[in-house]
Amino acid sequence: MSIRVRDLVHIYQAGTPLATEALRGVTLEIQEGEFFGLIGQTGSGKSTLIQHLNGLIKPTQGSVEVDGQNLWERGTNLKEIRQKVGLVFQYPEHQLFEETVFADVAFGPRNMGLPEGEVKERVEEALAMVGLAWEIADRSPFELSGGQKRRVAIAGVLAMRPKYLILDEPTAGLDPMGREEILEEIRALQRQGVTVVLVSHNMEEVARLVTRLAVMHDGRIIAHGTPEEVFSKGEVLEEVGLALPQIAQLMHRLRERGLDIPVNIYTVEEAREAILRVLGPKQGKSARFLTL
């Protein structure tokens, strides 16, 4: 089971002088259960790509399959696909519209035609998943704080119990604590078996969380693989204006300067250990000599 994209091309305003090619042949497979990262500059085609994954836009060429079902074949129910592939847009709080948090989160399940009892159950579950108290359900979404609004909006997608969850910059504009909380919840979801696709331009976030990632540039995927594989090609990323995660940059430069340091390291903790191993404080150094 997977989302499979083959030779996907998308041209906006095709056939007019304003035609722009947003995707120039993208092939990609996202496996069930993965934590997948998608990175790239603004305008690299990330947004266009993810809107193809739940059939919001139609490919100009190429195909998109979800669990083996081609989205644009006759007989495909796009509404079902959109329930299966949940998409959380950037600044999702901008879509809130109902009078109460409950009604807003219930919008998706009600569109699915579920009985009220089940709707309520799902709203409860979704709010809990994003760490919001049930008491909030009767309040107006418009009077909540920025971070809370964002969670309500994410809950609105979770309430459809998607199998695949795509999040476009879910932490944009939040402060560090808000960011950490949201990421923690996303990680928890993934552990519970939801396949997560995280679109981000925060390399540190991506390096820390995902199991596999793809880098987009100018409508193409220019690198993909595990974080180790992708970040080992630092030059490729820098050429397209993306920076390696800070720690990875540091490790690369230290190695260039002749220190014997592994480069596939992204967290502060690992970096500290690696550096201490090589040039630790005096006692560390003597320990090293002893082992030699």
């Binding site: 800070q246 720690i247 540091l250 230290l254 970096a271 550096i275 040039l279």
Partner: peptide, 30 residues
């Protein structure tokens, strides 16, 4: 929000490498 490089500098200082407090960038730390 504490950048990773600054966090690393703190950690190293705590572990006995006297990284000066003015260091905030990757190049400086390298």
């Amino acid at each position: 929000d504490v950048p990773q490089i600054v966090q690393l500098a703190w950690e190293l200082r705590r572990s006995g490498i006297p990284v000066p407090r003015e260091i905030f960038s990757i190049n400086e730390l390298v």
